[in-house]
Nucleic acid binder design. Structure first.
Length: 100
DNA sequence: CCCATGACTAATT
DNA sequence: AAATTAGCCATGG
């Protein structure tokens, strides 16, 4: 199974209004955050796959194929609160970052 | 096969 | 607190 496919399979599991970091994805896939990011950057279906729910480990939103503006807009639309490109309530150790 | 390139991170300055 | 630096690993040339 291709690496990118493994990444996307995980990404689709992220619930609405929540976010996962590149790092956590990488750990789960025994890879590196950079490799994960690269896989998402070449995401063939930026609409179908919710890759906007993958953020940086420091709480900043990180990049997006269609631009940060769009990424933030999508997250906000799902109820995620963001200030200065940074997610709020980014302080828990649960599997997914709970926001809202 | 070798090398450069990132939607990144952690440690250091 | 912001900027640099050194690792990271899948991918494409």
């Amino acid at each position: 199974m291709e690496f990118q496919e493994r990444v996307l399979k995980e990404v689709v599991k992220i619930p609405r209004g929540k976010a996962l970091t590149y790092k956590k994805l990488a750990l789960k896939l025994n890879s590196s955050p950079r490799a994960v990011a690269k896989a998402l950057a070449s995401n063939p279906w930026p609409i179908k796959i919710p890759c906007h729910r993958v953020v940086m480990s420091n709480g900043k939103v990180g990049g997006y194929k269609l631009g940060k503006k769009m990424k933030i807009k999508l997250l906000r639309k799902e109820g995620v609160r963001i200030k200065m490109e940074r997610l709020l309530n980014f302080n828990n150790n649960s599997k997914f970052k709970k926001v809202r």
